[in-house]
Design a protein around this nucleic acid. Structure first.
Length: 554
RNA sequence: UGGCCUAUAGUAUAAUGGUAGUACAACAGAUUUUGGUUCUGUCUGUCUUGGUUCGAAUCCAGGUAGGCCAACCA
């Protein structure tokens, strides 16, 4: 049975192109500017571009659009490569727009020779003043009428470094009254006496996006150049330049960038969060950068699945964060090893358990795993740590956990009954005293008693200490950039909660970066890069779904 | 007083002139030694007004709403 899944509009275009023989294979590219770290929005573009060539045959290049030396750095190049690989994609060629600077320079000369470009001495303010507005036509620059010979001479001298930054530009000669603002003699080259991360000081003039991107696509014979909606107005210029230069006709297609609730997907704004220390770096686990999500414990599979589910379209959108959480829970449920960890401990003493006795109980590693996951031994004793929130002095209705006189199952061990509890002067509960039912041991329970609730625990004598970092959404509102004022006003002050002394199963000390765990009843966790065997640190990737919080609010 | 893009449940996305479907979310229930997982069920939708057609979410026209465009950024 073939499941007919609807095609997105780009797949439709490609299938049509393939069917009518326009192309034998398709070539796409992922074209980041190395001026920041990749985020969840880029993941969509990566999955799209690489996914398309995997599906239809062909290949995808990784091309860095590095035409602005003042913002670009090698650090970003390296992080981008790491992130794309981590997401599970391998590019055919690693390319750089800066590799084409000689060719692009020649393209500019071709345009000058055709009378389609000129050197303008106007300042950026003067250019802006003559540009007009969306509703009013612009006016020609006084330098627009220069001869080809003069333009050639001036452009060469720009290249030779005779002029200061900003004193001259090369502009296309199109139409200052055009309804598309981008066609009003767009700037093609500008002077920047700046060090480039790859070409060093070879150049002091650099091409603008419009003369670099489409031409790079063309040089690489990219068939489908896929970008986001804000480039729609550029398409007319993209096509104009290819036509006038008479080069390989790559075609541009635009889809809507993906927005996610309670976060931002803007490199500029993410950089602001880093620079203003609202977060602790690009890979802060609260960031929806690829590196932040990796550190937090997301899997590439879950991110790819997410991108797949949200699809591709042309309308404005705001995807629910709960879908991303669903995707990561679904994957982690299958692969994460279950362990017990007590995050907010309170002592529980089993009064009728033989003093100084210990025993091993066996607990499942992951019954949901493909190969069943097996079991592990866990040390049990008469003195345990349990979760403070699992005891209620005055239970609410439908409370299945511990309360005076209530019974509960200790996961993989015995059923216990709460007999007493001790408070300190401030009224904090310091110890809960229970009796246990020896015949109720997990695996050979002959007690005939059914406990409605099951809670997790660790033995005080056998547990290890760990630091646990709990993350919540970074913003308090769904669309922080859509609200009044600067988006940083809406940062969630409680997005990070650090627990210095949680208790974990001893074996968890050996957990390695990249390992995935489910702390039973608490969520999915992964060791942070700061973690050591002496001082284990865990990040909470995502909580478990919690229907009790909803029930308890009723 | 311009040009371009878009409009299907709360969210995202299918249906390509022929029964408006799927996922997430929400809600109800079953199972459960995780109030997890799994399973079952329920709720909610074609922006609007005309037109073409036997038949329109789909094609056409006019509205309306939202987005983008006036960086020597990409």
């Amino acid at each position: 049975m073939t499941e007919e899944k609807g095609l997105n509009f780009i797949e439709e275009i490609i299938e049509e192109d393939l069917k009518n023989g326009k192309y034998r294979q398709i070539i796409t590219r992922f074209p980041p500017e190395p001026n920041g770290y990749l985020h969840i929005g880029h993941a969509s573009s990566i999955c799209l571009n690489f996914g398309l060539t995997q599906k239809y045959g062909g290949y995808t290049n990784l091309r860095f659009d590095d035409t602005n030396p003042v913002t670009e750095e090698t650090e970003f190049v390296e992080s981008i490569k790491e992130d794309v690989r981590w997401l599970g994609f391998e590019w055919k060629n690693e390319l750089y727009a800066s590799d084409y600077f000689d060719t692009l320079y020649q393209y500019a000369i071709t345009l000058i020779n055709k009378g389609l470009a000129y050197v303008d001495d106007s300042s950026s303010e003067e250019i802006a003043a003559l540009k007009g507005t969306p509703t009013e036509p612009g006016k020609n620059s006084p330098y627009r009428g220069r001869s080809v010979h003069e333009n050639l001479d001036l452009f060469e001298r720009m290249r030779n470094g005779e002029f200061k930054d900003g004193s001259k530009t090369l502009r296309a000669k199109i139409d200052m009254a055009h309804s598309n603002m981008l066609m009003r003699d767009p700037v093609l080259y500008r002077i920047k006496h700046a060090h480039h991360h790859r070409t060093g000081n070879k150049w002091c003039i650099y091409p603008m996006y419009d003369l670099a991107h489409g031409q790079s696509d063309s040089i690489e014979k990219v068939t489908h150049s896929i970008c986001t909606l804000e480039f729609v107005p550029h398409r007319e210029l993209y096509d104009w330049l290819i036509e006038k230069l008479e080069i390989y006709p790559s075609r541009q297609y635009e889809f809507a960038r993906r927005n996610l609730t309670y976060t931002i997907t803007s490199k500029r704004k993410l950089m602001q969060l880093v620079n203003e220390n609202h977060v602790q770096g690009w890979d802060d686990p609260r960031m929806t950068t690829i590196s932040g999500m990796r550190r937090r414990g997301f899997t590439p599979e879950s991110i790819r699945d997410f991108c797949d589910r949200i699809g591709v379209a042309k309308r404005e959108n705001m995807v629910d964060m709960s879908l991303l959480e669903f995707c990561v829970r679904e994957h982690l449920n299958k692969i994460a090893i279950r362990r017990m960890a007590v995050l907010d401990p309170v002592k529980l003493v089993i009064t009728n358990y033989p003093k100084d006795q210990t025993e091993e109980v066996w607990s499942e590693n992951n019954p949901e795993a493909e190969n069943n996951g097996g079991t592990r031994p866990v040390m049990f004793s008469g003195e345990l740590w349990i979760e403070r929130e699992d005891f209620m002095e005055v239970p609410v209705k439908k409370w299945f956990r511990l309360a005076p006189g209530a019974i509960v199952r200790l996961k993989s061990a015995y059923i216990i009954k709460c007999e007493n509890y001790i408070k300190d002067k401030e009224g904090n509960i310091t110890e809960i005293q229970c009796s246990y039912i020896p015949e109720s041991r997990s695996g050979n329970d002959t007690s005939g008693i059914h406990a409605k609730g099951t809670i997790h625990w660790v033995s005080t004598a056998h547990a290890a200490k760990a630091e646990v970092r709990l993350y919540d959404r970074l913003f308090t509102v769904e669309n922080p950039t859509g609200e009044e004022g600067d988006f940083t006003r809406y940062i969630n002050p409680n997005s990070l909660q650090i627990i210095k002394e949680a208790y974990i199963e001893n074996s968890l000390k050996e957990a390695k970066e990249g390992n995935k765990y489910q702390f039973i009843r608490k969520g999915y966790f992964t060791p942070d890069k700061d973690s050591t065997p002496e001082h284990p640190v865990f990040n909470r990737t995502v909580t478990l779904k919690d229907t009790w919080v909803k029930e308890s609010r009723k």
